[in-house]
Amino acid sequence: MNILVLQGSPRLDGNTAKMCEAFARGAREAGHTVHIMNVARMSISECQGCLKCHSIPQGEELEASLHPEDGRCAIRDDMDKIYELWNEVEMMVFASPVYYGSPTAPILAVLHRSLAKFVPAKIKKTALILASLYEDVYHASEYIYYGYFQGYFNAEDCGVYTYAGLDDVPADKLNELEELGRSL
C-alpha cells in the first residue's frame, strides 16, 4: 500500500513526529511504502478561493463545472509535492499537534488547497494522529477529520490516536502506532 503521512508539527523531534515515525516503522515492516511530509516545514500558502483549479466560467453552477481530474492550483509552492502523490496514495494519515483545539495551520492549508484535487483517486484508508498538552481538547480536530478527511474521502477509518502531556510519548502508545502500521 502507498501511504502518505501529512505531519503538521514544526517540532522535528516532538511527540507528533515520534508518533508518525512509529506508525511508519510498522507500516514499512509490513512492506508498505510510506511518505512522510512535514507540511509545517514546507512552504504551503493558504487557498485563495480563486477556483482557477476548476476553470469556473462566469455564471455557471459550481457543481456542474468541477473537474477534479483536471484541477491545477494557480499557486506554485510546496503543495505541488503533495499533489504529485495525491492520486497515487491508498492511505492518508493526518498528524498534528492540537493548537487551540484544531490541527495546525499547515495541516489546514493542505486541507483547503485539496480543493484543486478533491478525493484522492485510490484512497482506501485514513487515520488521525494528535498530540497535545491536555486531554479532552481533540473535539474540533476530530470533527474536521470525520467531517472532511475521512468522511468526505469515504475511506475506511483506521482510528484516531492521541497523546497528551509534556513528556515523551510512552512506549505503549508508540507500540500501538507501530502495530497499526503492521496491521494494514
Rank of each mutant, 00 (worst) to 15 (best):
S65K: 11
L6N: 06
N154K: 15
D80C: 03
I129E: 00
A121E: 14
N175R: 12
L177C: 01
T33Y: 06
N154L: 02
E84L: 03
D168Y: 03
L174K: 14
V39A: 12
G59L: 10
S96T: 15
E178I: 11
C47N: 11
L12T: 15
G71F: 05
L66Y: 02
G159P: 09
D172K: 01
E156A: 12
L85E: 00
L66T: 06
E135D: 15
Y83C: 01
S141Y: 08
I75Y: 02
M1I: 03
I44Y: 01
Y100R: 08
M91Q: 07
W86V: 11
P170Q: 14
T126Q: 03
P57F: 02
C158I: 00
A95C: 06
E135P: 07
K124I: 02
M79W: 11
M92Q: 05
G181W: 13
Q150T: 14
F23W: 04
S45D: 15
A24V: 05
P103S: 10
L184H: 04
A109Q: 07
A74C: 15
R72V: 13
P68L: 08
N87D: 15
E179M: 13
A121R: 12
A105T: 13
I75R: 07
H54T: 01
V89I: 11
C20I: 01
A171H: 09
K125S: 12
S96Y: 09
F118I: 10
P120M: 02
M37P: 03
L184R: 04
C53M: 04
E61W: 11
Y138C: 11
E88M: 08
M91I: 02
Y100W: 15
Y138F: 15
L66A: 07
S43W: 03
S141H: 04
I56N: 03
H67F: 00
M79E: 00
C20G: 06
S141C: 15
I44L: 08
G165M: 09
V93D: 00
E69D: 14
A74N: 04
H35I: 02
A24Q: 09
A121Y: 12
M37N: 11
E88H: 12
A22W: 03
A155Y: 01
A155E: 11
E90R: 06
D157T: 05
E88C: 05
E142M: 14
V93E: 00
H139Q: 14
L130P: 07
R113H: 06
L115M: 14
A127Q: 02
V110G: 01
S141F: 07
R182H: 09
E156S: 09
F153I: 02
A164C: 12
L108K: 15
L177E: 04
A22S: 10
N2Q: 12
Y143Q: 14
R11W: 02
M79I: 13
L4V: 05
I82M: 05
K125L: 00
Y143V: 08
I56V: 11
L128W: 05
D78M: 05
Q48C: 02
L130S: 06
P170A: 14
V110D: 05
E156G: 10
H112C: 09
K81L: 11
E69S: 14
V160N: 08
S9A: 06
P68V: 10
H67W: 02
A116S: 15
Y138N: 13
I44V: 11
A74R: 08
L12W: 04
N15I: 00
H67E: 12
S96Q: 09
Y163M: 10
A155P: 04
A24E: 10
I56T: 07
R41V: 01
G59F: 10
G26V: 05
W86E: 07
H112F: 12
E135W: 12
L133S: 10
F149A: 01
